[in-house]
Design a protein around this nucleic acid. Sequence first.
DNA 1: CCTTATAGGGATTAATTTATGCGTACTTGC
DNA 2: GCAAGTACGCATAAATTAATCCCTATAAGG
Lengths: 116, 116
Amino acid sequence: MKYEKKIPMRKDCGLHLFKELLNGKWKLMLIYYISTGFKRPGELQRKICTADRRVLANQLNELVVHGFVSKVIFDTKVPKVEYELTDLGKSLLPVILNLEAWGESNRAVLERALTV
Amino acid sequence: MKYEKKIPMRKDCGLHLFKELLNGKWKLMLIYYISTGFKRPGELQRKICTADRRVLANQLNELVVHGFVSKVIFDTKVPKVEYELTDLGKSLLPVILNLEAWGESNRAVLERALTV
DNA sequence: CCTTATAGGGATTAATTTATGCGTACTTGC
DNA sequence: GCAAGTACGCATAAATTAATCCCTATAAGG
């Protein structure tokens, strides 16, 4: 059962489009890791081990529904699933790397800010 | 009274540093508008008129506390306040413009994604 | 047979963030 | 005096997001 929003979404600028779709706690990280070759749910979960399995699964599902990631289900005896980035997902990589670079290059001051 | 987090903050990568500090609904927009010359609380509120005054004030206060914005209080008869970007706030502008550009250049597909 | 691994999910609670109700205080202009 | 403008803030409710509880099912390895 999908959660129905009560307050309308904001689509008035690119910042809000980004936020409405990619605000999830692990979404950008998932896209990044998928881009670096971690494609299977189990792999991703081990990579992001502080996140609960179901939270990651929910975020991955949303990424699929919104068209950032596609899900490939293999018809093998033992269940096997792989995620891969769509073109839309790939278009996000430069943005993610930019965000990551900003954060890392300001790490010292940002960590101090977090303690205030 | 500041809200005390019960779940520890994630500082493990630049993406999380960014998110912990700038996840607020209007924060990036406020930084952007301040950079374009809208410096006073009233101006900003009229510019972002769908947001409640108190919500904007809270987000501005956090931006000040975290060092993205500084607040100048003029000692005039009629209250007058101006915000301006710190160096840290300015360092964020390219990132914001990058996000905004990504969102706008993918607007069509993103708006469709929001309806799913 | 039992453990570990694969992958999944509905229902509920907890945590966090945003919105709102109801105030303060001062000044200018009519 | 009163309305409108400047700016601010506590306390609470509502909305949203994340975390957790308790499950299913199959296969391989020992």
